[in-house]
Nucleic acid binder design. Structure first.
Length: 437
DNA sequence: TCTGGGGTCCTAGGACCC
DNA sequence: TCTGGGGTCCTAGGACCC
């Protein structure tokens, strides 16, 4: 008998790599297996990825590295600066492979994606095992697979797949009796649910909603009234009613970003307007490059600066300024001029600045550029120059060509004391890796 | 001594328009 | 002293995610 489309049970899978950054490092250095390994954020500041062995040492996610440094001596903790060139390339390979397992894929972050398994008539759990085996064999990356009727349930299933060894890395709610489902949900803290963060968790606990099961059966009208539609959707999704659709990254291509931020902490604090201007100029160039990559222009630019908020005894100052552009643009030179005018306005003498950044807003496609009667049209010329600049920087490395304002010394640049070579993207560094051995 | 860098969505409130 | 009703757009801020 022919079944109506709606009779198909929607099925989502969430696949993510375990300890992705650490796993990437391990692919190229197998001696790291079974050892406590962490990868650090920019400036070697925080711990952003931990191997299981590192987690077992009690190292928390996101803690400042200096709090764990003593474990290098005492427990042989191994650490790396982050190498986003390597992780980005490994991610692209993983997503290409995973995309081949389903007609539709949503790439959700650098290390996870949703697959649409709706209507695929096979045992979802064993299909999940196949996906894991292939990713391990072809890329060397360990993964976990969660399956459910909604994205929220797939996320939660992924949590179980990861935490409970008896499931062998794959968990499917649909292979679960309803009673068993509630029993499992009663064992999971409400804070593990996708969309429930620290704040919401606290407020929910105050209402005696402490487990996933509690939230699943919570009074919808009350949730709506207290927390709005976002959490109301989450409750529906926990009950198997799909409210969040798969956003088809494969077909529609990369979505245009609505805001672009380029901001970094400085390797060491800086005090002068000259240095600050150089940093801001360089961040603006980076942001403008991202803007051109998605073929957009922006109408507003925000510049912000701040001192080190963790230094209690130090004088604090933080400020930002939003600047409109006369004509929307993606020209590094024009954006840079505006950004520098902003930094001059908010700069104050006598502070140790630790961080600065640039945010681009009012982003729309370059084809929609609104002319200005009083400004001669220089767009054609500008886009040619920018094209050449992007091309050279892509071919010969970042900052081959940059504005004089960005400075040549750049002693404010980030620290990255232990970055591994770019094994997969640079022949020269592959040779270097061999020489190191 | 040392504390990341991106993004998203939703809501409330004000400005402005008819 | 009286002072509409609705709509749109923008911004700031709060929450979340990785």
């Amino acid at each position: 008998m022919l079944q109506p489309l709606s009779a198909l049970r929607p099925t989502f899978a969430l696949i993510d790599a375990n300890n992705f950054y650490v796993s990437c490092e391990r692919v190229f250095n197998p001696q790291l297996e079974k050892k406590p390994v962490v990868v650090l954020s920019n400036n070697d500041g925080c711990i952003v990825a931990r191997s299981q062995e590192a987690k077992d040492l009690g190292i928390g996610m996101g803690i400042p590295f200096f709090q764990a440094k003593h474990l290098i001596q005492s427990h042989g903790l191994i650490w790396f600066s982050s190498n986003y060139t390597l992780y980005g390339d490994m991610s692209a390979r993983m997503m290409a492979l995973l995309g081949s397992f389903a007609p539709r894929q949503e790439i959700y972050s650098i290390d996870e994606c949703f697959l649409d398994l709706t209507g695929m008539h096979r045992d979802a759990v064993s299909y999940g095992q196949t996906i894991r085996r292939c990713t391990r064999r072809y890329l060397g990356l360990p993964t976990s697979v969660g399956i459910g009727k909604t994205k929220t349930l797939a996320k939660l299933a992924n949590h179980l797949a990861k935490k409970r060894v008896q499931y062998g890395g794959v968990f499917d709610w649909q292979a679960c009796e309803p009673l068993m489902e509630d029993c499992l949900m009663a064992q999971i803290d409400v804070g593990e649910i996708w969309g429930v963060g620290k704040r919401l968790r606290m407020q929910l606990r105050a209402m005696a909603i402490t487990t996933c099961r509690d939230l699943k059966y919570a009074q919808v009208s009350l949730i709506r009234q207290r927390f709005g539609v976002v959490l109301e959707r989450t409750v529906a999704e926990l009950n198997g009613l799909a409210c969040l659709a798969l956003e088809d990254t494969q077909i529609s291509g990369e979505k245009r970003k609505q805001q672009i931020i380029s901001s970094k902490s400085f390797g060491q604090a800086i005090t002068t307007l000259t240095d600050l201007s150089a940093a801001v100029s360089s961040y603006t160039a980076r942001a403008a490059e991202k803007l051109r990559q998605q073929d957009s222009i922006c109408s507003h630019l925000v510049v912000f600066i701040q001192t080190n908020s963790f230094a209690d005894q130090q004088k604090q100052y933080a400020n930002s300024i939003t600047l409109p552009l006369v004509v929307a643009s993606n020209d590094t030179r024009r954006l840079s001029q505006v950004a520098l005018r902003g930094i001059e306005k908010i700069y104050r003498l006598g502070y140790n600045y630790k961080k600065a950044g640039v945010m681009l807003l009012g982003i729309h496609p370059a084809t929609q550029q609104q002319g200005n009667l009083f400004v001669a049209d220089q767009h054609q010329h500008a886009s040619k120059v920018m094209h050449v600049m992007d091309h050279l920087n892509q071919k010969y490395g970042a900052n081959t060509l940059s504005l004089a304002g960005a400075g040549l010394q750049q002693h404010w640049r980030m620290q990255a004391a232990q970055r591994t070579p770019n094994y997969t993207t640079a022949w020269a560094e592959l040779a270097q890796a061999r020489a190191d051995r």
